[in-house]
Nucleic acid binder design. Sequence first.
DNA 1: TTGTAGGCGTTATCAG
DNA 2: CTGATAACGCCTACAA
Lengths: 341, 341
Amino acid sequence: MTDMKPPPTLDDVARMAGVSTATVSRCINDPQMVSDKTRVRVQDTIKSLGYTPNFAARSMAAKRTFTIGAIIPTMENAIFARGLQAFQESLHSRGYTLLVSSSAYQADAEEEQIRTLVARGADGLLLIGHDRDPAIYDYLARQRVPVLVAWSYDKDVATPSIGFDNRSAMRALADQVIALNHRHIGMISGVSRANDRARMRIAGVKDAMTAGGLDADDLTLIEVPYSFRHGTEAFTQMMQQEPRPSVVFCGNDVLAVGALRGAKQMGLRVPEDVSITGFDDIELAEVAQPELTTVRVPHRKMGTRAAEELIAMIEEKRTGVSEDLGAQIVTRQSVGPPKAP
Amino acid sequence: MTDMKPPPTLDDVARMAGVSTATVSRCINDPQMVSDKTRVRVQDTIKSLGYTPNFAARSMAAKRTFTIGAIIPTMENAIFARGLQAFQESLHSRGYTLLVSSSAYQADAEEEQIRTLVARGADGLLLIGHDRDPAIYDYLARQRVPVLVAWSYDKDVATPSIGFDNRSAMRALADQVIALNHRHIGMISGVSRANDRARMRIAGVKDAMTAGGLDADDLTLIEVPYSFRHGTEAFTQMMQQEPRPSVVFCGNDVLAVGALRGAKQMGLRVPEDVSITGFDDIELAEVAQPELTTVRVPHRKMGTRAAEELIAMIEEKRTGVSEDLGAQIVTRQSVGPPKAP
DNA sequence: TTGTAGGCGTTATCAG
DNA sequence: CTGATAACGCCTACAA
């Protein structure tokens, strides 16, 4: 019982259906070009043979893979999960397959993964944020691989982006919070090097400070990797500085929940003793105690629109158009007015 | 400036280096078969030309893709993230690329993804848990695609698995908790249909009940999808039943954190009024208030060992061997003795 | 150690 | 509407 029968090929189908391979190929890729009668016959034998096109052969001949690559900074938390899920659903409904990998927020890892994806013939790439070595964009341009950036929106950049304006989103939140009369402002940001989202969020807080009559240089800022633990540590450290901030803006919800824990450990009540805000509005923000005031990012919409636009860029061989999907403030319980001194 | 120069091919390299394509191919795939002198020369021209092998052509000719597919139930939380990260790192260091997709805990979606991955020529597959339609295993066997199961360990099943014994792990935790004198036991489980991990964890709790002199049929059980919200809802509902459980075992940490929130909303103190446990020990378990007593799963080790074993199965064309990596209890603050009645 | 040449499974062009 | 028949880029016996 050593059946080594190899999978059926286009040829097998053609022979069995009594047509040429070209016709079978058409039945699969361009059904309306084939007469009803032969199409039905071919499709039947395809089914009866259990034939599946060979992917490698197909992409070699067509010079297309119907594959799209996405490199996200992390899979360790849900920040990108919802958007990616939507991205992949849209892709799938259009006949594309998604290849994901995560760079762990490391520029060199991301670069290598970009090259791998290109070498594998990805028809297009989705990248998060704009910041990266210009050489990479050159490379991608030379290879003629369409690239779309998500989670950011910047109309002044050559690479098309679909997302939202991180700076003004954070500024809107900070405006609202500072209006409560906070005077000493702290911020726990993700590492801003090679991360325009993080940088823009910092800028947003500073914008609000300036607008609120504060000196942006007085911002107490700590940059750490995005993790619960780093959020807690940064918060603890920040609360020991003078002047002690009455509000701490966090670069994302994970950092904020870490900060919440830090407050608890220090016996500080939120928001009575100190206000804390997040960013992203992942499910965690609602589970936290107190629930987090944060910025709601259009996760699924970004994924869906990015898929549509990237496919359009590929199929219509045109350059992508950027789109600002906006973001909105979600007011919950982690923010209040500062304590009277 | 419409340079349509296509990427260099093996042929280009060969011509430029003054050797045959076979030699260039060897330099890439079997360097020690080529004399030092020509190898150096070829490698130089490869570099100067910026040559990258064409993936489709290579896999078509070699009938191998150096690609491994993994289908995980979800990317929405960190349950599988750490293990997958380790899996991918190991794969990468051995020259393989990982293709991930998530099934959203849906059997039919998983099946479709399996077929896609196979059609794309994945050299091997990593699946989570044993439970699935036997027809799928048949299909995979016919296609001669090596499959390894992770996050479960069951030596009595044909498909090799690398993970831990969910039943005895949960039992160990339950033994310890019930020994505190809990008499009314509740459990919030993930949906157990087509999910052996969930089923085994339930069985583990029942085992402990029986061993502790309780009637396993008295277990108050609710099955819900794994999410914070469902954890909260299930907990709230459960606490309104009679007899009210003094401890609630949760199928994973996400559910447990949801339950914690439910307790808070109901004004119940944990662990004074009710004990709650998790499973998996993701970072969240430590951030929760109170910190979660849970089961620590060997995330990274599973990923690493699974990669090694799967590659061995592929390259040595042998059947895989299962491995029990064990799990351990992590005692934190969410468990205490029951309140005196 | 190196070269020659056939073949891998599809798509696409061009006649018919 | 359908059928030959070149590519596509690389691997791998087999020969030298």
